[in-house]
Amino acid sequence: MERTNDSVLTEFVLVGLSAHPKLQTIFFVLILWMYLMILFGNGVLISVIIYDSRLHTPMYFFLCNLSFLDICYTSSSVPLALDNFLTVRKRVSFSGCMAQMFLSFATGVTECVLLGMMALDRYVAICYPLRYPVIMSKGAYVSMATVSWLTGLVDSIIQTSLALQLPFCANNVINHFVCEILAILKLACADISINVISMTGSNLVVLVIPLLVISISYMFIVATILKIPSTEGKRKAFSTCSAHLTVVIIFYGTTFFMYAKPKSKTSDGKDNQDIIDALISIFYGGMTPLLNPLIYSLRNKDVKAAVKYLLDRKKLFS
């Protein structure tokens, strides 16, 4: 462990799968492929939405934000994880670790809130279709997206600031692939009850409240859809929400598994559980951004038509 003369921690060591070199190679290839697909899929989706003026609507504005957010979220941690797979014990500076933790937490929180905002957009579109252009004006949906980003930024500043105040005086080995906040809190040699309380409050604000908003919105959406007389009308109405609902289930299901109950400092001897948690975090950190563009592309005729139109234009000018 590297320390300065005044016993201030200067670096962390990321263990990851160092005890399983064969698994490291497998996961390096798997995560690298996943990351490249995330960049490609979300990059194409953003390009299509920006390029096709027919997609310049509130729903696709939120989707563009979601895709950009997924790129930022994975880019804040996946490159460090890939580097970790190539080394036995990856060393990362204290400041670099905190910066990576800050970015990952900020983007994760922003996505939670943004999914709630997207549910409100779908609620207005289905329940108040005639008033939708007035209610979801440009000022309204831009403000909703801005609130999502600011919430993630402020919450991450609070959690990171509290973590920076903790003393790390005995152990700097993180049983994870990246600088994940719960793994770092376990290393503190002081009472972390304030951090646990703060994380619990954060979970209530950015996990529970958006999920309640989503649940209530879809209760009204389903009730409205059931009142539609024609089967075709019901199918079209539900198709505009099914992609978002699928993404919500995947994202919140895996996130709640990891963060719904903040863990306090634990004793040594639980390395296997830590590695299992780390692998799960790779799943929710990678699979959701990977599936988002696929789900929205396969279940959305407008996106498929825009992609086809873009490809045809490229063929025409090639």
Rank of each mutant, 00 (worst) to 15 (best):
T10P: 04
S18D: 13
A19L: 08
F28N: 11
G41Q: 02
I46L: 07
L55P: 02
L55R: 02
N65F: 05
D70G: 15
S77M: 13
V78S: 04
D83Y: 15
L86Q: 15
R89Q: 15
K90I: 08
R91M: 08
F102A: 05
G108F: 05
C112D: 09
C112H: 12
L114F: 03
A119K: 01
D121A: 04
R122D: 02
Y123L: 13
A125N: 10
I126A: 05
L130T: 10
R131A: 13
P133N: 09
T146Y: 06
Q159V: 13
S161K: 10
S161V: 09
L162T: 12
N175D: 13
V178W: 00
V178N: 03
I181E: 03
L182G: 11
L182Q: 12
L185P: 00
I194Q: 13
S198I: 01
N203D: 12
I209Y: 00
I209N: 08
I216Q: 10
I225Y: 03
I225E: 02
R235M: 11
L245W: 10
V247H: 08
M258W: 04
Y259N: 01
A260D: 04
K263L: 11
K265S: 14
S267D: 10
D274F: 10
I282Q: 10
L290T: 03
N292I: 15
P293C: 10
I295V: 14
S318H: 10
